[in-house]
Amino acid sequence: MGICYTLRDGKSQGRTELMSIEVTHDPALMPAEPARPVIHPRWVRVTHWVNALTMVVLIASGWQIYNASPLFAFVFPRWVTLGGWLAGALLWHFAAMWLLAVNGLIYVVLGIVTGRFRRKLIPIRPGEVLADARAAFTGKLKYDDLSVYNAVQKLFYLGVIVAGIVVVLSGLAIWKPVQLHELAAAFGGYDTARYVHFFAMAAIVGFLVVHVIMSAIVPTSLRAMITGR
């Protein structure tokens, strides 16, 4: 079934030209979409944004938990923490933990099964990382093809996945140092696991800072993570 439209073509010099276009609901006959390929499939975008929210909750509540017994000579200012006090922060942390576990599992399994990790993140060659890093700092790195990651990006994305795995495992060791005491022992014991958990968090926060700055410098990458293209 077709519908008849009449459009006004404004480009015709001075004259007003009437054009008739036949529009149908048959996709094969629809005018072609602007040809931007899908860079991020839906599962990547959904898990990315769920993870973003989960990370903010876990980091902010984790900082409040840290403040109850600081590992170093500083505490996090209250306004960047979540939960109000230790009990509230623990409630947030151990609620968001499930979201991270489920979402992270989906992401890692699909990343491996679909071959996305293999296609996008490896190989990482040290020479390319150095060259791309130099190019990035001198403003010469091109960001025109978002479907291909440069070597620095690959290193960052793979690195944050590894940091994510370490933060989860060290978190489990701190949470269950008796039931999972073999895991805690693998981290050098309960007390050391706390430091590992802290530094894995710090690595993730460092990644986040660069990641957010880069998405502001290259806004099309932000658009791609929202619309997929």
Binding site: V57, A60, G88
Partner: peptide
């Protein structure tokens, strides 16, 4: 470190609304 702010009955409100969320 353990005690709630006695002036705040809802222990989550302060940090949550002012904080990162």
């Amino acid at each position: 470190k353990l005690m709630p702010d006695p002036t705040r009955r809802l222990f989550l409100r302060g940090g949550a609304s002012l904080g990162a969320l």
